[in-house]
Structures are given as structure tokens and as C-alpha cells.
């Protein structure tokens, strides 16, 4: 060990690397842990459930282990009509979201309200639970908007997942949680970001997300490389299911210049009436249409209620 003083060198290396890890991981962890879940954040977390990427309960990313977002129009207990409200239904056996299992994740204020008034710690995976988002009379620190919190309606109102699902029409049930799994699995986020930019994007893509908008969500799937428009608020720009259906089946039907791939395979085998979808025939007719041999494109088959495309459309429409 002459002029090359390796012992000093390796210590200096450890020091430098350790210092950089502390600054980039340890220091910001305080700021990140202090984030307080906003209403948007609570909605996203409750909608997408425990995780939307690979998980043991859904190894092939089929959209399993996911909650349903249900528009409740009638009181599930009494059957009386009520002011419509969104409920997040976790059928028995569905993993609860991170904010329920690790309440600190919700942030100061929200955690306390959700635990004390919302009784979320009483929710059990085995028996399932129904959650609501409530507004309190406290204010968010940075923007003068009311602080929202989670309520476990199974504990506070006695709503069980089965009762809520039974009284809801199918059109009031959003499979947005499973849809997020589709979004991740199909790699939508390789071309569509979920992160409008503070500096430029407001007018076209809407406002950028705020700090509390992601608590408990995983993966956030921001995306990094845009080849199509940002989708964070796409549901506010376009909420037409018919348009979405045509666009997913073959984007060129509604947008001739689109470079989006066709997602017709998400329709599965059969359409809404249980009839087998003849993709080959559809494609050849579409080619004829494209060549000008016929004047109208073939009809897009209506998707089945339990098809993967339904989940994905529900997710996209729900991006408000």
C-alpha cells in the first residue's frame, strides 16, 4: 500500500456513497412521509386497491384482488332513495388498500379522522368492507379546501359489500381498480403519461397533480415518454363510452392519424350477447373499408360485462 492508499480510498468511497444515499433517500423521506392525502389521493387509493402491478394474489395481472367503485343511489339498508354517493366496495377476501392497513400513510389529520370518525381500522379483509370518502370541516394546509377522510361504511352504517352490489345497476359499477391493472399490464403508460406538467400542460391536459394525490397508490405509473396525450384528466375531457369503445377496438375508426395500437384482443372471445367475435372477418371488412371498397366500417362488437376492455374503459372514464 504505497502511494495507492486503498484503505483510505475505500473508506472515502463508503463515506461518499453513504452521504449521497442519505441525501437522496433519507432526507426526502421526511418530506414524503409528511404528505397529507387529498381527496383525489383518497379516491385513487380506494379505487385502485392494494396494488396494480404484480402481486401474489394476481400473478398474471388479470385484474384480480381489486375493489369496485359503485355509485350508490339507494340506501343499501333501507332501500330508500338517497343522494347518490360513490362507495368503494371491497368484496370479502380483497386486500385492503395501503392507507387502511398502514394508516400513517394517510397523513396528519386525515389519519386521525379516518381512524376515529371513519373507523377504518375495523375493516377486515376476510369479511370485506365498503368505504366512503367524507369531507370534514378542517382545511387542507396548502389550499383552502376541506380535508377529506375515509369512512368504513361497514362499521359506521352497516353496509356490507354484498348489499351495496345487489342494489346497484351494472352501469353504476366501475371496474376501475381492475382497469388500472389493465393499464399497467398493457403498457398504456409507455405512451400516455399520468403527470401533466406544472409549467406547460394545464390548458390541454388539465392541472398537474398535487402532493397528496398519490398516497397509497402503487404503482403510480407516471410514465416518462409521451407518444400520446396525457391521461390524468382524460375522463373530464371525454367521458363517452361509445367513443372509447371504438377507439380501443381500432383507434383509426375515430382518429385516422392515431398511432395507438388496436386493443381489440381485450374484448376476449365473446361479445355482450355471448356471441363469438369473428376478428378475422372484422379485420378483412375493415381493410375493405380502408381501401374504399365499402363505405362504412364494420360495427364494433359491444363488449361483454366481464371483459377486460370493460375494466380498462371504466378506469379511463374514471380519470377525472
Amino acid at each position: 500500500m504505497n502511494f495507492r492508499e486503498y484503505r483510505i480510498g475505500s473508506r472515502a468511497f463508503g463515506l461518499a456513497f453513504g452521504l449521497s444515499m442519505s441525501i437522496t433517500l433519507f432526507f426526502p423521506s421526511f418530506d414524503l412521509a409528511a404528505s397529507i392525502s387529498s381527496e383525489v389521493g383518497l379516491d385513487k387509493q380506494l379505487t385502485s386497491g392494494w396494488d396494480s402491478g404484480w402481486q401474489l394474489a394476481d400473478p398474471l395481472l388479470n385484474g384480480l384482488n381489486k375493489p369496485l367503485k359503485v355509485l350508490v343511489r339507494k340506501d343499501p339498508k333501507s332501500g330508500e332513495p338517497m343522494e347518490p354517493v360513490y362507495a368503494y366496495v371491497y368484496p370479502a377476501g380483497t386486500s385492503l388498500p395501503n392507507g387502511v392497513t398502514h394508516t400513517a400513510n394517510l397523513g396528519k389529520g386525515v389519519e386521525e379522522l379516518s381512524v376515529k370518525q371513519g373507523r377504518i381500522t375495523e375493516a377486515r379483509k376476510e369479511s370485506g368492507a365498503v368505504f366512503l370518502i367524507k369531507k370534514s370541516d378542517q382545511l387542507l394546509t396548502f389550499e383552502d379546501k376541506p380535508l377529506s377522510y375515509m369512512e368504513n361504511a361497514t362499521a359506521t352504517k352497516g353496509w356490507t359489500p354484498d348489499e351495496v352490489l345487489k342494489q346497484a345497476a351494472d352501469s353504476d359499477i366501475l371496474h376501475a381498480g381492475s382497469g388500472k391493472t389493465m393499464f399497467v399490464r398493457e403498457g398504456c403508460w409507455w405512451c400516455h403519461t399520468l403527470l401533466p406538467e406544472q409549467t406547460q400542460d394545464w390548458q390541454v391536459f388539465g392541472a398537474p397533480p398535487m402532493l397528496g394525490d398519490f398516497n397509497g397508490e402503487s404503482p403510480t405509473a407516471f410514465g416518462s415518454d409521451r407518444k400520446g396525450p396525457d391521461l390524468l384528466h382524460v375522463g373530464s375531457r371525454n367521458a363517452s363510452r361509445e367513443w372509447m369503445m371504438l377507439h380501443f377496438f381500432n383507434p383509426r375508426l375515430v382518429q385516422p392519424h392515431s398511432i395507438m395500437p388496436r386493443f381489440d384482443y381485450l374484448w376476449g372471445e365473446v361479445d355482450a350477447d355471448g356471441k363469438k367475435i369473428d376478428f378475422k372477418k372484422w379485420r378483412s371488412e375493415y381493410d375493405e373499408y380502408r381501401e374504399g371498397k365499402i363505405t362504412t366500417p364494420p360495427d364494433v362488437p359491444m363488449y361483454a360485462k366481464d371483459s377486460e376492455i370493460r375494466n380498462l374503459i371504466d378506469f379511463v372514464i374514471n380519470l377525472k
Binding site: 414524503l32 412521509a33 392494494w50 398519490f214 403510480t220
Partner: peptide, 11 residues
């Protein structure tokens, strides 16, 4: 299972 912005940042 770290989530939210922590997950995005760690990614």
C-alpha cells in the same frame, strides 16, 4: 409495498 410519491421517486 411502499406507495405513492415514494414509489415514484424510488423508481
Amino acid at each position: 409495498h411502499l406507495t405513492g410519491l415514494t414509489e415514484a421517486y424510488m423508481t
